[in-house]
């Protein structure tokens, strides 16, 4: 009877051992899913469309801008973009400088701070 009891204990011990291994693996698995979801969420929530739209707008503004009036035109664009973005709780602006050969783009929200200087010489922003 003693030997049977010992075998029972060994069985329980092995079961515990295997269970612990499996639990560890399942925890790892669960962590991976969580990390994956967080990463995809961060990527999906990044305001890339807002920034692309601002860049498109910069290109259009430079094309439509009368060269002689670039200062006033820039000021009009800057004021309107800033006010329109402010009602959405984010800061966005477009600053046309150096007679329209450079455009500075700023986008600042709670999560993202983005700034870019585009070279717009010749009417095409890069």
């Amino acid at each position: 009877m003693a030997s049977v009891k010992e075998r029972g204990q060994v069985l329980i011990l092995f079961t515990l051992l295997i269970s612990t291994i499996i639990i560890s693996i399942s925890v790892l698995h669960a962590q991976n899913i969580l990390a994956g979801m967080e990463t995809s969420r961060t990527m999906m929530m990044f305001p890339k469309e807002e920034i692309r739209n601002l860049k498109d707008l910069a290109g259009i503004a430079v094309k439509k801008m009368p060269p002689a009036k670039w200062g006033e035109y820039s000021s009009d664009i800057y004021d309107q973009v800033r006010v329109l973005y402010s009602q959405k709780g984010v800061y966005g602006d477009l600053i046309i400088s150096e007679s329209g050969s450079k455009v500075i783009l700023n986008f600042i929200s709670g999560d993202v701070e983005y700034s870019e200087t585009m070279n717009c010489a010749g009417g095409e922003c890069k």
Binding site: R7, V10, F14, I18, S19, I22, S26, H29
Partner: peptide
């Protein structure tokens, strides 16, 4: 038999844990 029982019980535990997670 013991090994099989061990594996079977572990699988049950895994199933329960997996469902939980």
């Amino acid at each position: 038999t013991f090994t099989l029982e061990g594996v079977a019980s572990a699988l049950i535990l895994l199933l329960a844990l997996y469902t939980l997670y």
